[in-house]
Design a binder for these strands. Sequence first.
RNA 1: GCCGGGUUCGCCUAGAGGUAUGGCGGUGGAUUGCUAAUCCACUUGGUCGAAAGACCUUCACGAGUUCGAUUCUCGUACCCGGCGCCA
Length: 436
Amino acid sequence: MVGLLSPKYVRDNLEAIRGSLKKRKSNYPLEELLKLDAECRRIGVELQGLRASRNKGSMEVAELKKAKKEPGDAKMKELSGIKERIESIEASLPSYETRIDSLLMNMPNVLDDNVPFGKDDGDNVEIRKHGAIIRSKSPSHEDILTKLDLIDLEQAAKVSGARFFYLKGDLALLEQALIRFAIDELAAKGYTLIAPPLLMKKEYYKGVTAFGDFEDMLYKATDPNEAKEKKAIEHTEDELYMIGTSEHPIAAMYADKVLSGSELPKRFIGVSPCFRREAGAHGKDTKGIFRVHHFYKVEQFIFSRRDESAVLFDELIENAESLFKKLKIPYRIVDVCTGDIGTVAARKYDLEAYMPAQQEYREMVSCSNCTDWQSLRLNIKYDERGKRDYVHTLNSTAIATSRTIVAIVENYYNDDGTITVPDALVKYMGKSKISR
RNA sequence: GCCGGGUUCGCCUAGAGGUAUGGCGGUGGAUUGCUAAUCCACUUGGUCGAAAGACCUUCACGAGUUCGAUUCUCGUACCCGGCGCCA
């Protein structure tokens, strides 16, 4: 079950956690957690002793009854007293446990030593750049696509609201082509395709993200009032959220499981729509389909041994790069700094593509090594030579459709108004040019 | 939605108020001239302890009855049948 993360982990890794929180300039209340944990263990020792005497007493009663003798009133009174003391101590525990649990669940991951220090995304460090600029500038994708009658944002805004869209004809096909392209490329590298559930329980979401921060990003799909009304519908009790990415249900695919060391690493391709509320993004990227409420994403996900995750992290970013190389879109890789990395990841690279209309590099791919943050919370272990350890989880975008579409449209726009189909996608499109 | 049957270690399984049985698999060890066999130990999580060890916890989940619950009662989830409804 989710929430089994133990304070023992914190005690065992105290120095690393302290150092990492400092590097993050985090205001996480570590001292409160340690104090509560110590207090809770002190109570636990007392409770354990009482339970031991209860069990011993009960055994004695059992022995006597077996010998057809009665235990006597004094004995039974003593046991009743123990029972009451146990019950009163047990009643005091939940308040500690709830607080400890919530502190543990939201504790930021221990950063990799190599994460650059910085305040925000402006301090991310460019580590490499690839591909010559195709067009130094272009009209916006919105203008290009509207003129070609391939997109309808106005009607989508009317029907669904801001940041929704209709893709039409070849553009809708381009989306499918991108999905299939990414799947085929990764499948050829031995990754297994997963189509995950698109709704997920809150309980598991808490194991996969820092839910307090992330909840605003998600659409909730159930109505808590239904449970009261006793409607004849499934899942009235569950709090279901529409997934923000297939990373989340794939991470939870092995919740409470013990994998065998020999089957690691397990490499997966997730494909799903991704739903995002984009709360707090008012006024940002409002034109076109760069930042929208849903898009398709082909995702890479790996469950690995502790000692392999650093190498596999490089594998994931290289896979993503190879897709953008084949699409011939110029990009750069940035090493995401302490101020921008977020709670879950220990290390993160972003791939940013050059966008000629904005004349800027913009995020296309985010690649994270989450080390044991998710597995501690989802209780995913592996067994090697009889020893158990928590797996490491890694994820990276392969292709996120809407943003990649923007990159293709703006980079492959021709001055005659047409769009060239990247060579790698021609076989999926059945044509090499999109025109009116 | 209704009526049955179920959920016990990674897997299979016994147990019907007295403290969880056996097997398979896995890990470690012992032994033996044969790609293997046999035997022993360990194989939920945790607390105290320098250690040896002791203790607690664990039979889907949650509540109740009890000195004591895998076992009895109530509720919930999920799985398998049957009926009904339905894309």
